[in-house]
Design a protein around this nucleic acid. Structure first.
Lengths: 120, 120
DNA sequence: TGCTTATATGATAATATTATAATATAGTCA
DNA sequence: TGACTATATTATAATATTATCATATAAGCA
């Protein structure tokens, strides 16, 4: 991945990395909801919710249809949200590698001048 | 997922959401590397790198073996890093739903008193 | 001993994010 | 008209993150 791509991806991860926003998505996965209902479910201030909704809108993860006075928010990239929850729900064990192997790989690349201390 | 879990997951996402840290992981996926080599590859300050490494260590995503004066960093949760890159590399199309369907779902839950404006 | 390399830590300034509070808009209802 | 509901926006203060700079430690070398 090139540096610009990485920057974008990092940005997305970072912006998804907020518990309120994850909770909003969890609710919307269950079905479209209007702002007030989300606010009641999450028990947060309306203005704060509005800000988070706007972050998710900018990320093109959600959008809304107006229904009279209501705005019904829904997920417009369901596969992305699925993949996100799959990722964060995963169980990822620690798998240590052997000291010798890691040391061999990790030797200085450029100036191989560095002499290694006794590796005990 | 409960709220505490969500908080943890959000924290992880947010911490992974930094381009320098993603670039570090990209390098380490290719193989263990010592600090100076990572620094040269990424062209960043050593102290800054050290901070990012420490964030990744705290997340239990990387660790190191000492090799004399070198510290060879490597990934200790390869499946997590794999899953992460799989997630961020994915292509997730926008899939809009119909206005009618969304509106129906999105009606106020609690007080159904709200009368809807003409839906044109 | 004093220099150099490798790495970490602490302090700080610049910047970004968040929650909160205040205000704004627009539709509905009495 | 005036009150009320739903939602967004703006300003702001509190907080967090980042990069940079200076300093610290420890090993090896001349």
């Amino acid at each position: 991945m090139n540096k610009l791509d990485i920057r974008d991806k990092a940005e997305v991860l970072k912006l998804m990395g907020h518990s309120t926003r994850l909770l909003i998505l969890e609710e919307l996965v269950k079905g479209a909801k209007c702002v007030t209902d989300i606010k009641d479910l999450l028990e947060i201030e309306q203005s704060n919710l509005s800000q988070h909704l706007s972050v998710l809108r900018n990320l093109k993860i959600i959008d809304f249809y107006e229904d009279g006075v209501l705005r019904c928010y829904y997920i417009i990239r369901p596969r992305m949200v699925d993949a996100l929850f799959t990722f964060i729900s995963g169980n990822y064990p620690i798998e240590r590698r052997s000291c010798e192997e890691v040391r061999k790989e990790g030797e200085r690349l450029k100036t191989k001048k560095v002499k290694k201390a006794k590796s005990n």
